[in-house]
Design a protein around this nucleic acid. Structure first.
Lengths: 237, 237
DNA sequence: TCTCCCAACGCTGTATCCAGTATTCGACGC
DNA sequence: GCGTCGAATACTGGATACAGCGTTGGGAGA
């Protein structure tokens, strides 16, 4: 059976294609947090055998997107607040370093345009408030900075970024007010990168995530004893 | 065929056992940097089939220890200086954050004893100068801090740490003078953690790695135009 | 009616098998 | 003697087959 339903280009390994497809489906919410990922169904649906599929699941496991329990197969990671906080703590320093290296690299003007374009689309998601578009642009912004850093090890951390922003979306809903503040912080980060101010770029990027951590922790400590405010909004970064 | 030669305990998945064995063999230098990893030979040698072995190789690939090229199998990563520098840049902020969180967690006294015990063995590697013992204790020290942080995402970065310290060992030889200075820095970090000084712990830990980056970069820029000093020693952290 | 046990099912984990391709060794020509 | 072409080899990638285990639904007994 020859790759029915898998659209990846030639030359690229089938495992990577499968990993990309599954990643996208997890990000998009098609496989919600905590959902089982039965190998036979997925293999049949994707038109491949279980052998490469299992390797793809191992890749996603290492990326932190799924959890493979021996004897019980794979599940999409389910996110408690403590895990989310731990991931954000790593993101704070990773994003900070990425911003510093991006500022140091002094990206070509075209790349800066990309960053500004992402910011524009993110701002556009405010007027007719579209959480989905906002989150998408938000992920794009942070991921773009990772790429601008030119450091492959930082790029490899992208799945953690997407996990915090997209997989755990149900637990971390955004509200427009915080989104607006987040965008302002984004613009300050972009300005620092364009100006080549390494220290500012790192400090701002780290503080940006740290603000989210603080908010999330405050809400958690607040909501845990008396969960009356169950509709509380989550991080906007 | 029933796990001949694989010694992992029961209950744990075979893939994880294989990954652990291969990891250790790469760390120990049995599979040197750049070496091919033929699946058939390894499978026969480990007494398992190729199916779980391939999954284990995918795990190691995600950890950055091997590179799987489609159609050409897996090789141990080969380290040029640029890659090593990129990895150290990530380590600088990761180790810094780990030290901060370890200081915040205020580890139990027993854990502090462990840290001090590692430092003692590292210092013992100085008198009869044993680069191998030194590097081992060095890895233990940094890895211990990752665990003390209590952050699973930081612990997941341990392979990057071991890669920089052990896989790329040939390119980064240590010399006793730098080792002594590195140990002094380690002790300062340990003291800050025990005292619960978060800012000091992070600053010292990050500077510790940053010093290595600066030295390595200086040597590289120095050695590249006129490679007369080919015996130059590498980082000691 | 509730609980407990058992059997059937489904699924995972591993091994084996086949096709395609990169590599390498040897022979031939320059 | 050296470079190049080609065939044999060996290895990777993917599919399929089989064994073991967990789960679940139904039936019997209290």
């Amino acid at each position: 059976m020859a790759r029915r339903g898998v659209t990846g280009g030639p030359g690229t390994g089938l495992v990577d294609e499968l990993a990309a497809v599954l990643r996208e489906r997890i990000y998009s919410g098609r496989y919600p947090s905590g959902a089982r990922l039965p190998q036979e169904n997925l293999a049949a649906e994707l038109g491949v055998s279980r052998t490469p599929l299992r390797e793809a699941l191992r890749v996603l496991e290492q990326e932190g997107l799924v959890r493979v329990t021996p004897g019980q197969g794979a599940r999409v990671v389910s996110g408690d607040v403590a895990t989310l906080l731990a991931a954000y703590e790593l993101r704070a320093v990773v994003d900070g370093l990425a911003a510093r290296l991006a500022a140091r690299a002094r990206p070509a003007l075209a790349r800066c345009r990309d960053l500004r374009r992402i910011l524009a689309s993110q701002r556009a998601a405010l007027d007719p408030w579209s959480p989905r578009a906002y989150t998408g642009a938000n992920v794009d912004f942070h991921e773009q900075i990772l790429h601008l850093s030119g450091n492959e090890f930082l790029v490899a951390e992208a799945p953690v970024l997407r996990m915090t922003a997209q997989v755990f979306a149900p637990v971390a809903l955004v509200d427009p007010a915080r989104a607006q503040r987040a965008i302002a912080e984004h613009e300050a980060i972009a300005t620092a990168i364009e100006a080549g101010h390494e220290d500012d770029a790192e400090r701002l990027a780290r503080a940006h995530i740290q603000a989210t951590i603080d908010e999330l922790r405050a809400e958690h400590d607040d909501a845990a004893p008396t969960p009356r405010d169950s509709t509380a909004s989550g991080p906007a970064s």
